[in-house]
């Protein structure tokens, strides 16, 4: 009996759909995401490939560390790991310049969170992700290599910063859409340099490699910072130049 009553109560208060509903819901302006939510949501739009390739690079380094003995050339293994870093930087840059690669810039620029904020979001996400990877690589390398933490960080970061600095320079000064090929070329070149360097430096004192790395580190950091500032200025003030 109660079940029937419950049903009857429901029926008793049944009314027709309100007249203004459709229009109201159609014109309803939903409240918008805040910046933090926006950035968090962008994590899901980083391509799977990007995550995969960076993890693969890390995996390769682990494998290398585990199976290769220290060679006679001083710091050789560290040099080899270091020369893989340009590719990590390359993945970063490729993800960053996705909008221009696929001609999405203009459409994205017209949105509430415009191009500069998409850029910032990708930069933050990839920056943090690569930071974590570098840290894990450095910690693991420290277990296998005799050089010590500071030197490892120096060797890992120097080529990474250099490639990113140069890539940002190319993105900032792009003429056409081919900037990504320039970035790839730079990554490969820096990587090869890293492989050749130790044999070349062997003739000089043992510490010269560290000096070279320090110089590269500082140059790279300087470039990254100046180019980032330039990029930010360009996106914020001049908006995007499609001409």
């Amino acid at each position: 009996m109660t079940d029937k009553l419950k049903k009857e109560i429901k029926e008793a208060f049944e009314i027709d759909s309100p007249v203004g509903k459709k229009q109201f819901l159609k014109d309803f302006r939903y409240p918008k995401l805040n910046k933090t939510d926006f950035i968090l949501e962008q994590i899901f739009y980083i391509r799977k490939k990007t995550w995969l390739f960076s993890v693969l690079i890390m995996g390769f380094i682990f494998w290398f560390l585990h199976f290769y003995e220290n060679s006679s050339t001083p710091n050789m293994n560290l040099w080899i790991i270091s020369s893989l870093m340009p590719f990590l930087a390359l993945i970063f840059t490729v993800e960053l310049s996705r909008s221009s690669m696929f001609k999405m810039e203009e459409m994205e620029a017209g949105c509430l969170f415009g191009l500069s904020q998409i850029f910032l979001a990708r930069m933050l996400i990839m920056g943090i992700w690569n930071g974590i990877l570098l840290f894990i690589i450095a910690l693991t390398a420290n277990l296998y290599l005799p050089e010590g933490m500071i030197k490892i960080f120096l060797y890992l970061l120097a080529p990474y910063l250099l490639v990113n600095g140069l890539s940002f320079y190319f993105i900032n000064n792009k003429r056409e859409r081919g900037e990504i090929y320039s970035c790839a070329a730079i990554a490969v070149m820096v990587s090869i340099c890293g492989m050749i360097m130790p044999r070349f430096l062997k003739r000089y004192s043992e510490n010269i490699g560290t000096w070279v790395m320090s110089v590269v580190w500082i140059t790279g950091l300087f470039m990254v910072l100046t180019q980032l500032r330039k990029m930010h200025k360009k996106l914020e003030e001049d908006r995007w130049n499609f001409a």
Binding site: Y45, R47, M107, L112, F113
Partner: peptide
């Protein structure tokens, strides 16, 4: 002229654009 991210289907594309427009999922 506009392109699209090749890995997207129509729905993904609209959801991505919605995110840029600040519309909650």
């Amino acid at each position: 002229n506009f392109g699209y991210y090749p890995e997207f289907c129509a729905m993904d594309f609209l959801l991505y654009m919605a995110a840029l427009k600040g519309i909650p999922k």
